[in-house]
């Protein structure tokens, strides 16, 4: 369904080049929920932008439904890391959610229904006529999610969507993501740098190394499908999975430090 093959991205220009992503290969099956973890600055956002067709990879390719991605694919939606800035402050919440649907040329009645349903699905009622800046951060993030859901995508990409909300809201939103994933049957790639969150949410966790970035490790999360903040997180298996991923990341860090020290010693 979603394939990333040999993806490499080098940012260039102004005499300084940054290799954000070295070589990434992985695959998501239709209807799967995978979490991508990796240290800050390892190129998660870069990867997501390449998948979304917003950035052209330096080499390698991304394909969705077996079709190579050259521009933003039709049935994909993205929830950006900077959710507050991705909502348009000159439009009401309702208009923000509705605009992509207008661009999709849906008829008015259908649009109204999708707007109402998607806002209800994220637990927002009576905010359609409010402006995004009248809402709290957590509510704004819900609006961004509602906009993505109303678009009825087959693939949904989420980039560290809960990095800036408080712990309670975060827990609520995590459960929200699980429930909409189940309800709408979408393929979901969820980026985070929080290992606990990755294990709690995902059916699979893809661990990225520190820069130069490759896929370090993949773990299938064999926890029950019905998850609960308290019960799931206190399972022995949850702790095991967490420990495994921690260890992988720790090794990756040690390896990259050793590499660097070796390189410095040679120089």
């Amino acid at each position: 369904m979603l394939e990333v093959r040999g993806l490499r991205k080098v940012y260039g220009g102004h005499g300084r080049t940054v290799e954000a992503v070295r070589d990434l290969t992985f695959e998501l099956k239709a209807g799967e929920l995978a979490c991508l973890v990796g240290p800050s600055g390892c190129g998660k956002t870069t990867l997501l932008k390449c998948i979304a067709g917003l950035l052209a990879p330096t080499s390698g390719e991304v394909s969705v439904h077996g079709q190579r991605v050259a521009g933003p694919p039709a049935d994909m939606a993205v929830v950006f890391q900077e959710y507050g800035r991705s909502l348009y402050p000159w439009m009401t919440v309702g208009a923000n959610v509705e605009l992509p649907l207008k661009e999709k040329r849906l008829v008015r009645a259908r649009r109204r229904q999708l707007v109402t349903d998607s806002l209800a699905a994220v637990g927002l009622h009576d905010v359609e006529n409010a402006y995004p800046w009248q809402l709290s951060g957590g509510m704004q993030q819900r609006v961004a999610i509602a906009r993505a859901l109303a678009y009825e995508p087959q693939v949904l990409l989420m980039d560290e969507p809960f990095a800036a909300v408080d712990a309670q809201t975060r827990a609520d939103l995590e459960d929200l993501v699980r429930s909409v994933w189940q309800r709408f049957g979408i393929t979901l790639l969820f980026v985070t740098h929080d290992i606990d969150e990755a294990v709690y949410l995902g059916e699979r966790v893809i661990v990225l190394s520190a820069s130069p970035t490759v896929v370090q490790h993949q773990v299938t999360v064999d926890l029950p499908t019905e998850r609960d903040q308290l019960a799931t997180r206190s399972l022995a298996r949850f702790a095991e999975l967490r420990a495994e991923i921690y260890q992988q990341i720790h090794q990756a860090k040690a390896a990259s430090t050793a590499d660097r020290l070796a390189a410095e010693a040679l120089a």
Partner: peptide
Amino acid sequence: DTARCYRFS
């Protein structure tokens, strides 16, 4: 980027 993702004309 948001506008491009949702394929605005």
